[in-house]
Amino acid sequence: MRAAEDRLLLGCLRLAGAAAGSIVLLIVAYLLAEALPALQALGPLRWIRDASWHPAGGAGAGRFNLSPMLIGTAAAATGAVLLATPLSIASALFCRFYAPRRLGGGYRRLVQLLAGLPSVVFGFWGLVVLTPLIGRWQPPGQSLLAGILILTLMILPTISLLAESALAAVPRAYGQAAAAMGLTRWATIRQVMLPAAITGLSSAILLGAARAIGETMAVLMVTGNVVRTPASLLDPVRTLTANIALELGYALELHRSALFVSGLLLMGMVALLVGISEALRPEERHG
């Protein structure tokens, strides 16, 4: 027997769930519809085989190679994840197990503040402070390295806060049992807490990676945006997101449609990440 409020709540929840789901579907449908003219006009291979990215010339004279940007996006996101992961897990461990109570609380607030900073602030700081600094060493300074550093700063709080809540979800009894066996604090963390929280930790990292892939403004301001496959950390790169932001306002017809193809590609990358995180998740069903 179910009360009327229960049915009402269920209805509302279904509606909200359907709305959230259909928004994603609508976005994908819209992307597909907008990208279709370019996909039809150019076929599947020109996106990786063309000599360069000069999309303004139409199907004949235009060049539509997206692969340097795909590589740029992957390189920037991977670099940022590699740098941010150890730092943020260390930060979560500090906050949870090592910091005195007061300090830990204050530190957590700071990390939360960092997580809430708008990306354009990071980007502006990067453009005005970070890139000239790198540029003094290796001009021009706007480079893959600058992008990685800025992205690291941006995803560090995300991963750190999520990792901390994953550690907090480890049952207290585990820690007590480890203490009862006389394990040191570090041994407890390494052999009990981290393995027990590994699911949450990996989804924290994947969420950070998704944020790094999707970040636009900050990256656009510091990476130099030259469409070329980077040969070193100090080469400029253009990411797929920056490509859309730079050109969409001025793109017409086929060029515009080609930008939606890069959007589609981006969606594919994020979907792949979500898929990986689902596959890594052990059997843990919620009723």
């Binding site: 453009l127 021009p140 300074g141 706007q142 130099g224 469409v227 400029p236 932001a245 730079l246």
Partner: peptide
Amino acid sequence: DVVIGDNQQGIRSVVG
């Protein structure tokens, strides 16, 4: 060496 979007970004890049 660098590709920019708007005028302000170009000015900031030259200043730096």
